[in-house]
């Protein structure tokens, strides 16, 4: 699984961090998404898919 994020589009809802804390974090200054792990392991895949589905601006792209 390959993950990319669009920081320009991000609105800092924080839903990705709640869904997959090992993969996503937020910048201190404005809460914008920070990608911790662009190649998450298989056991995190479901959480990452959830994070992408919950993002209100579709700023998380997942390639299976």
């Amino acid at each position: 699984m390959k993950v990319t994020v669009d920081q320009d589009r991000c609105v800092a809802s924080g839903q990705c961090v709640t869904a997959a804390m090992a993969v996503f974090d937020q910048r201190d200054e404005d809460g914008v998404v920070v990608l911790l792990d662009p190649n998450p392991s298989a056991e995190l895949a479901e959480d990452v898919r959830n994070a992408a589905a919950l993002c209100p601006v579709m700023a998380i792209m997942v390639e299976e």
Binding site: V11, A12, G14, G31
Partner: peptide, 17 residues
């Protein structure tokens, strides 16, 4: 909207909350 919104999002980040 994005310019103003990003001025107030920091304290609502998950770790801060």
């Amino acid at each position: 909207h994005a310019r103003l919104r990003r001025m107030v999002t920091a304290p609502f980040a998950i770790r801060r909350v």
